[in-house]
Structure formats: structure tokens, C-alpha cells
Design a protein around this nucleic acid. Structure first.
Lengths: 163, 163
DNA sequence: ATCATTGCAAAAGCTTTGCATAAGA
DNA sequence: TCTTATGCAAAGCTTTTGCAATGAT
């Protein structure tokens, strides 16, 4: 059976964004849509400068001010989130439609593994019982050395690592 | 039995710092010592501006530049660590001589509970086995609403909260 | 026709840095 | 004496903001 995908089919993230804009009485603009579409073209983490340059490389000259004004909207409607503040600026990731996950990062090459950890629910329940908090969320980031960056058994040189 | 504490007894953190300075061939200065002593006068989290003002309030005019130059040294020798980047600047905490712990924060009033969680060791072991990483550390921050900020059963007004 | 949004440039805030002076070793 | 560290002010970066022009409703 051939799937009949209409050309007008909209990226789900864009639909969510448009609905959010509407519900807040804000205005739908080309710039905002362009930013959303660019962010969701892939699943890589991103930062403001990178996003700005990606848009520019496609001839889409959207000011950084507009990007800085749009990102908080995307955070508010649950499409993206701040991952961390590193190298002097914020890094973001797409979260819409994805299960909650944590990051395992290689300190050497920066490789990132995303994982889901059921034990965190247990930890949250324990904390709620022990301290009476109503837990809303958690951020867990684990650091380590990935297999590729570890010294191989044959050549135990702890200095060399994959970059 | 009366403990005989000599007046020359040194704050352990200061001793660690002096040894670190010596081992690196750096110079021991009054400013650095003053900064270390002020940081370890209590266990509260702190930021640069706050530390600067605390020193100033005691008539100790140490430039922010010196503070900014000293904090990385304290991080390097394991006396303090960056907790998070919030409100546009870094926040630090003292970690020397304390067991590793995580933070449970109230989103309303900012109250912080520090807790130790043995399950994180399990999580780390699982990650190491699953992905082949050599784990070095983790950062877990849990957010929620503390008991004082939760609406009381008698007056179920979800807007009111303790500040 | 309104009024929110954009782009630009300026401003704001935190952090870093160049340089002359002060002070450890 | 020889350097390193300090303080000040300037610079560097990211992010925010004021304002005139543009564009959505």
C-alpha cells in the first residue's frame, strides 16, 4: 500500500509551535518558522551562533536578536531545552516527542550517548518521601572516557586518545 | 581530657591550598589566602560578586580580577567546584572533605537539600557495562517544590507559595 | 489601522586580559 | 634580584534591549 503523504503535511514540531503562538496571541512570522524548521532538520545539539551560521549558509539572514528572542518561546512550548552552559554560552537540544533521557559524555572527544534510566524514578520517589518535595524534573549528566578514547590493552599509552 | 589545639592550627582547606600552590611553583599571597579563608568561613554556595562584597564588607579590598584568577586554582586543587550557571553567572560550592552529593532544589524559594544517593553507583556501573565508558563523575540536580512552598491541604491555592 | 516583530546598533553583564606597580621567593 | 601576582581599566563575549521600520492580523 502506498502512503499518501500530502505536500502540505507539516513538521509536527512546527505545528506545535504554531499552536503555541496562536494560544499566546503572538504572531506567526516567517523568521520564527524558519528558525524552527532549521532546528528540527536534525537531532544534533546546537547553540545560537551555530544556528545563526547554518541559516546564513542557506541565505537566510535572520538576526541573532530574533534567534535570542525565539529560543525562549521554543523552551516554553517544550520543543527544546537548555542542555548546559559551556564554553561561555548555552547549548540546546530538541526534546519534542522524545522520551526523557540523560547524557553520558566523553571528556576527551565530546561524544555523547543518550540513555534512559528507570532507576531515576526510584531516586525521585525516595527524595519525595524523605524530604517532602514534589519532584518536577531531574538533570543527570555522566562524564567518562569512551571506548575509542581509552588506551588499548596492546598499547597502554594513557596519553593518546581519539579526537 | 582537654584537647590541646594550638593557635597556629591551620584551616585544613588553607593547608591544602598552600601545598597546591607550592607544588605548582606559584606564590603564596595574602590575597589568595584571604579569599580561601573567606570561602571556607561557611558552607553556603557562593558566586564571585557575593564573595567580593563579603570581603569588601570586612574592609578587605581584593579586586574581582584576583578572585577570577584564584577560583580556577581552587577548582584545580579540589577545594571547590562549579555548581551551575544561573542568572548569568557561575555559582560555586565548597567540596573539600565532603562526601560527593547531589542537589534537590525548590523551584519556588530556591531552598537546597544536599543528598547522597547510592543508586548512582549502580547507574554508573550499568553505563560502564553497556557503553564501555570509564566513568569519572556525574552531576545530578533534582528540581521540585519543597514542603513549605506546597499549597496546604486546608487552603488548596496553587498560586500561593513561600518565598 | 493596529500593534507585535524584526534588524540594527547600543547597552548590559560576566569574565578575561594588558600593563604598570607591588610584592613574594 | 627576578618573577609572579595584583589592581585597574579596557577589551571580549554572550545576551538583552531601545527604537525605527516592517509586516502580520
Amino acid at each position: 500500500m502506498v502512503l499518501n503523504i500530502r505536500k502540505t503535511e507539516m513538521l509536527p514540531e512546527l505545528a506545535v509551535f504554531k499552536e503555541f503562538i496562536r494560544s499566546r496571541g503572538l504572531r506567526q512570522t516567517q523568521e520564527r518558522d524558519t528558525i524552527v524548521l532549521e532546528i528540527f532538520r536534525n537531532r544534533e545539539h546546537f547553540d545560537v551562533d551555530e544556528l545563526f551560521l547554518r541559516l546564513l549558509a542557506q541565505g537566510k539572514k535572520i538576526s541573532k536578536a530574533s534567534i535570542y528572542r525565539t529560543l525562549p518561546l521554543l523552551v516554553d512550548c517544550g520543543l527544546i531545552r537548555e542542555v548546559n552552559y559551556e564554553d561561555g554560552h548555552w547549548h540546546y537540544e530538541q526534546i519534542y516527542g522524545r522520551p526523557h533521557h540523560c547524557h553520558l559524555r566523553c571528556s576527551h572527544c565530546g561524544a555523547i550517548v543518550e540513555f534512559e534510566e528507570p532507576l531515576l524514578a526510584v531516586i525521585e520517589k525516595n527524595l519525595a518521601q524523605t524530604y517532602g518535595y514534589q519532584i518536577t524534573k531531574h538533570i543527570l549528566e555522566v562524564h567518562g572516557c569512551c571506548p575509542r578514547c581509552q588506551p588499548s590493552p596492546a598499547a597502554p599509552n594513557h596519553e593518546e586518545h581519539h579526537v
